[in-house]
């Protein structure tokens, strides 16, 4: 073999390391605190390096790293405590969101702000706090979809659940977030409460 062939170090640095920022942002949302997220990132990359021999070039490196990161996080949580976040029974709905199609928030906002402009008045930290308050299963799905743009199948593979469950988690997680942010906006006076919502 020629000496020009890249070393595993070089390959790792080229293929895997560029995703460090994305892994950090994901870890931060999983862990909630910067110092814990940093430890999580370091552990993720250490494990990724140790199992780099199993990494197939061309597979989506970011998804691979997110999977490692989440597994490390969940193991830490398990070690520290029994997993206390119980997500409502989530029999995958064939048609997530079909049961309650109209957003319940809308009956509150349709008179004053039907297009949800109030969301933009909310500071980012408040949005992040609301995301962090979601159960891990919802939070992970929302972050992977809305921050990283992973598709349903990629999220399903990563979380090891069916696609229907991913849709359901995204739907419920987003509804919870919307309600949380709506309540905050009302409290802050960003949104006038509709005097008598119809229906």
């Amino acid at each position: 073999m020629s000496s020009d062939e890249p070393s595993p170090h070089d390959e790792f640095n080229r293929e895997i390391l560029p995703h460090l920022d994305a892994v950090y942002r994901f870890a931060l949302r999983l862990a909630g605190a910067a110092d814990v997220a940093e430890d999580l990132v370091q552990e993720t990359f250490l494990r990724a390096w140790r199992s780099f021999g199993q990494y197939k070039p061309g597979t989506r490196a970011k998804s691979w790293l997110f999977t490692i990161c989440r597994n490390v996080f969940l193991r830490q949580v398990e070690r520290g405590q029994r997993h206390s976040e119980i997500v409502e029974r989530e029999a995958p709905r064939a048609d997530a969101g079909a049961g309650d199609v109209a957003n319940p928030l809308w009956s509150e906002t349709r008179e004053t702000d039907p297009e949800g402009r109030f969301f933009h008045k909310i500071v980012d930290d408040q949005v992040l706090a609301a995301i962090d308050a979601l159960p891990e299963e919802y939070r992970t799905a929302v972050v992977l979809s809305d921050l990283e743009g992973l598709n349903y199948q990629e999220i399903a593979d990563l979380m090891e659940v069916p696609v229907g469950t991913v849709k359901s988690r995204l739907f419920r997680g987003r509804r919870r977030l919307q309600k949380e942010l709506y309540d905050y906006a009302v409290e802050m006076g960003y949104l006038a409460v509709s005097a008598s919502p119809e229906e």
Partner: peptide, 26 residues
């Protein structure tokens, strides 16, 4: 308006999630 509200919400979530600075020495 339901579509607009959903888009408005998503845009806000995306902006917020992209915020945190990555520590420079990480």
């Amino acid at each position: 308006p339901h579509l607009k509200m959903e888009e408005s919400f998503r845009q806000k979530v995306r902006t917020a999630l992209a915020q945190p600075e990555v520590p420079s020495d990480l």
